[in-house]
Computed example of a mutant assay.
Amino acid sequence: MSTPCRLAAALVLAVAGSSIGPASAADWPTRPLRIIAPSTPGGAADMFGRLVCDHFSEAFHERCFVENRAGAGGLIGMAAAAQAAPDGYTLATSSIAYNVIAPAISPNPGFDPMKDFTHIAYIGGPPNVFVVNPALNVRSLAELVALGRRGAAIDYVSPGVGTLGHLMAEVFAQKAGIKLQQIMTKGGSQAMMDLISGNVNVGTMTWTSALAQIRAGKVIPIAVTASARLPEFPDLPTFKDLGYDELTAVTWFALSGPAGLPNDITQRLNAAVAKMLELPDVRKRLDRDAVETRVMTSDEFTTFMASEIDRWTPVARRVMPGN
C-alpha cells in the first residue's frame, strides 16, 4: 500500500475509533453509574450521593448506585475515585471535608485534590451553628465573648477533629480574642448528647444535626455561618451580621470524577445536577435543612475548589496537632 493510502486508512480508523469510544457522550451511559460516597450509609455524603443518583437514573435512563467507601476522614473513598478510569462511570461525592481539610492535614492523602480530579458540579451544604446549653445563661455571641474574656478557656464540642465546625471555632476564638478548648467526642451525635446533658455547654455543629434540638429548646443557637439569615429563625444573626465576615461558610458537598473525564460527559453531568437543584421536591428537601445551593459550571466549581483549598489549608494546619 502506498504511503498516501496508508495515511488515509489510518485517518479513517482514528476517526472511527474516536466516535465509538467508551467515553463518548453520544453513547454514554451504556451501563450503570457508580457514585462513591466516602462515608458510612446515612452520612451526609451518602445522602447527597443518593439524591444525585435518583435524579441521574431518570435523566440518563440508566441505573445509578452509591458505593460507601468510608475511612480516613474520607480519603479512602476519594482515592478510589481518583484511581478509577475517566470514562464517566465512576464518580464521587466530594466535599470540603474530603477534598480540602483532610488532604491538608494528612501526610499522605493518596491524591492531589486538584490534579487528580475532574470537578464536575457544586451541590451545596448546610451552615454551621454555634449553640449553647440553656444552663450557661448565654443568649448571644457577645455574651459568649464576654464570658471568654474573663480568662478561663471555654470547653466546646464539634462533630470532630478536623471538621469545619472545629476550624470555625478556632478561627472565631482567634478573632474574638478568647480561648476555646475542644472536648473530644466520637462524632456529632455524641457531641450533641454532651451538649444536652450539660457535660459541655458550647458546641459548633452543622445546622442539620442541631436543628431538632434547637426546635425542642434543648440548645440555644447564638450565631450561624450562613450567608443570610434563615427563614425559620429570622432573629438568629449570622456571623457576618456580627462583624465576623470570615466565618461565612457551609459544609458543602459536590460531584467530582477522575482527572481526564471527557468534557462532553462532564458538561452533561453538570447540566443534570443543575436541573436537579431546580426540582420542587429537591428544593423543598434541601430548604428544610437550610442547605445553601449554588449552580456553578464545572470551570467555576474547579476555581471554587482551589479557593477553598487556599482558604482552609493554612487554618487546618495551624489548629491541628502535629501540623
Rank of each mutant, 00 (worst) to 15 (best):
I36H: 02
N68S: 03
A316D: 13
I76K: 02
I214C: 11
P231F: 08
A79R: 12
A152N: 11
A226M: 06
F117R: 13
N133E: 09
L136Q: 04
P314W: 01
R317F: 12
R288G: 07
G71Y: 01
V319F: 13
L91T: 11
D116Q: 12
T297N: 11
A135V: 11
M78P: 15
R6S: 12
T118F: 05
H55F: 13
D245N: 15
A82M: 14
N270Q: 10
V100S: 15
Q181D: 14
A135C: 09
L7C: 13
T90L: 02
I220M: 09
A84M: 10
A135Q: 14
S158I: 08
T302F: 09
S94L: 03
I214Q: 09
I105P: 15
L236R: 02
T208I: 02
L147S: 02
C64R: 07
A216L: 07
D299N: 14
H119F: 10
G88F: 00
S19D: 06
A254F: 04
A259W: 13
A316Q: 12
R311D: 06
V315C: 08
V200R: 01
R229H: 10
G243M: 03
Y122V: 04
V145K: 15
V161R: 09
H55T: 06
Q213V: 08
S197N: 02
A14T: 15
L144Y: 08
G165I: 05
V15W: 14
M47D: 11
A23Y: 08
Y156P: 13
L147H: 01
R311A: 08
S57T: 12
A249L: 01
Q83L: 10
L195C: 05
N199W: 03
P314S: 07
H55L: 00
K179P: 10
I101C: 12
A81W: 05
R311L: 09
K186Q: 09
V66W: 03
I196S: 08
D155A: 05
L11N: 05
A176Q: 13
A14W: 08
L195M: 07
T40G: 01
I265W: 10
L91H: 15
A9P: 01
E308W: 11
N199D: 03
P29M: 00
P134S: 15
C53N: 09
D245V: 08
K175F: 00
R317Q: 11
H166L: 00
T313Q: 12
D241H: 07
E58Q: 11
P126Q: 02
P280G: 04
A306G: 04
A37Y: 05
F239E: 02
P32C: 03
V52Y: 01
L286S: 09
L13Y: 00
S140Y: 14
R318F: 00
A226Q: 05
P234N: 12
P127G: 09
E308Q: 14
L7N: 14
V100L: 14
R34T: 06
P321V: 00
P29A: 00
Q267A: 12
E278R: 05
R31W: 04
E170G: 14
D27F: 15
F253R: 01
M1P: 07
N108I: 00
L230N: 03
T90M: 03
F253S: 06
S189C: 00
N263L: 08
